[in-house]
C-alpha cells in the first residue's frame, strides 16, 4: 500500500462473540486516509461506525471479539502489535474524542489531572511541564479562564465546555490522527457548530488527519473531504463528500438524503422515510444487505455481492448503480 496513507484498512471484519451466537458487526470494510484528510463515516445507529473506529485503536475486549483483515496505521500493522506498543500508540499516534463528554471523563479527578496523566505518559514530561501543556491545550480549545478550569472537576463544567476539554485531552500529545466518535451529538445545536469549527481549525493548525463518525448528513458536509456511508456493517458508498451527497449512487444513500433536511433541497418536498429496519447482524450476510428495504430490488440482488464498483475516485456496492453509471 502506498506510503502516504496514514490509515489503510483492508477487508476488516469484526465479529463479537455474543451469548446467543456471533454478531457480525463489521464485514469487509476497506478504506484509507491520507495525511491531513478528513473522512466522515456516515450511517444510522448500529451500522458499525463506532465499532470500526474502536477497531482502529483495538479497544474491543480481546476475548469477546474477533478482528480479521488488515489495519495499517502510520505504516505499522495494528493487529500484530504487542500490548505495550499498543498503549504507547493510543493517545500518541491516534487519539479519540468520545460522544459523551460527561461519561468519558473520570468523575473523581480534575480535568487537568486527566490531561496531565496522558501528557506525562506519552511525552515523558515532568508534572510541571505537563501542566503547562495542559493549560496551553485548554487555552487552545478556547475554554475561558483556562487556568481555573484546569482544577475543575468534570461535573463542574457545562456540556460544551466538557467536550472542548475532551478535545484538549485528545490533542494534548499532538496525535497524527484524530478519531471523533459523534463528538457533537450530545451537544446543543448552537454549541455543535462551535465545536465542529473548532475541530476543523485545530486540524488545520496541527496538520492532523481526522475520521469523523456521524449520523448527521449536515455535519458530514461541514467537516469532511470524503465520506464513507455505512449500512449493516459495511461501507456501501464512498467518495468525495460533495459528489456523494449531491449525486448519491446507492439507493440507501439516496434514501438517507431523502430523509434528512439538507441544503439545496426543495422546501415543498416532504421528507421520506426508508421503509423497514436494518437487518439483524447475527447472520453472515453475503447478498446486498439493503435489498429487503430497496425499491430497486431484483432477483439479482439476492445473489452474493460482487466487489465494489469504482469510478471517478468513488466506489459503490450496488449492482444497479453499476449498471446505471
Amino acid at each position: 500500500m502506498s506510503a502516504d496513507k496514514l490509515i489503510d484498512v483492508r477487508n476488516l471484519n469484526v465479529t463479537f462473540k455474543g451469548e446467543e451466537g456471533p454478531v457480525y458487526a463489521v464485514s469487509d470494510v476497506s478504506f484509507d486516509l491520507a495525511a491531513g484528510e478528513t473522512l466522515a463515516l456516515l450511517g444510522e445507529s448500529g451500522c458499525g461506525k463506532s465499532v470500526t473506529m474502536k477497531s482502529l485503536m483495538r479497544l474491543h475486549p480481546a476475548h469477546k471479539t474477533r478482528i480479521e483483515g488488515q489495519i495499517n496505521i502510520d505504516g505499522v500493522d495494528l493487529l500484530s502489535m504487542r500490548p505495550a506498543a499498543l498503549s504507547a500508540m493510543r493517545g500518541k499516534t491516534v487519539s479519540m474524542v468520545f460522544q459523551e463528554p460527561m461519561l468519558a471523563f473520570d468523575p473523581v479527578y480534575t480535568v487537568g489531572d486527566q490531561i496531565i496523566e496522558s501528557v506525562m505518559r506519552h511525552e515523558g514530561f515532568s508534572r510541571a511541564d505537563a501542566r503547562k501543556r495542559a493549560l496551553e491545550m485548554l487555552e487552545r480549545v478556547r475554554i475561558p479562564s483556562a487556568a481555573k478550569r484546569l482544577d475543575a472537576y468534570p461535573h463542574e463544567m457545562s456540556g460544551g465546555m466538557r467536550q472542548r476539554a475532551m478535545i484538549a485531552l485528545a490533542l494534548a500529545c499532538k496525535p497524527k490522527i484524530l478519531l471523533a466518535d459523534e463528538p457533537t451529538t450530545a451537544l446543543d445545536a448552537t454549541v455543535q457548530i462551535q465545536v465542529l469549527l473548532l475541530l476543523k481549525e485545530l486540524q488545520r493548525e496541527l496538520g492532523m488527519s481526522m475520521i469523523f463518525v456521524t449520523h448527521d448528513v449536515g455535519v458530514a458536509i461541514e467537516v469532511a473531504d470524503r465520506t464513507a456511508v455505512m449500512y449493516a456493517g459495511r461501507i456501501i458508498e464512498e467518495g468525495p463528500v460533495d459528489d456523494v451527497l449531491s449525486n448519491p449512487w446507492h439507493p440507501y444513500t439516496q434514501g438517507l438524503l431523502g430523509a434528512t433536511v439538507h441544503p439545496g433541497m426543495d422546501r415543498k418536498e416532504a421528507l421520506s422515510a426508508i421503509p423497514g429496519s436494518p437487518p439483524q447482524l447475527t447472520r453472515q450476510i453475503t447478498e446486498c444487505a439493503f435489498a429487503p428495504r430497496c425499491s430497486y430490488r431484483t432477483d439479482e440482488c439476492l445473489k452474493p455481492m460482487p466487489a465494489a464498483y469504482q469510478a471517478d475516485s468513488r466506489a459503490v456496492r450496488c449492482i444497479h448503480a453499476l449498471a446505471e453509471v
Binding site: F98, L103, A104, D106
Partner: peptide
C-alpha cells in the same frame, strides 16, 4: 466510558486499576 477513554489515551491495565 471513562475507562475506555483512559485506555484510548494510552493507559495500561495497571494505571487503569490504580487510578
Amino acid at each position: 466510558d471513562f475507562v475506555e477513554a483512559a485506555r484510548a489515551s494510552g493507559a495500561g491495565n495497571f494505571t487503569i486499576i490504580r487510578v
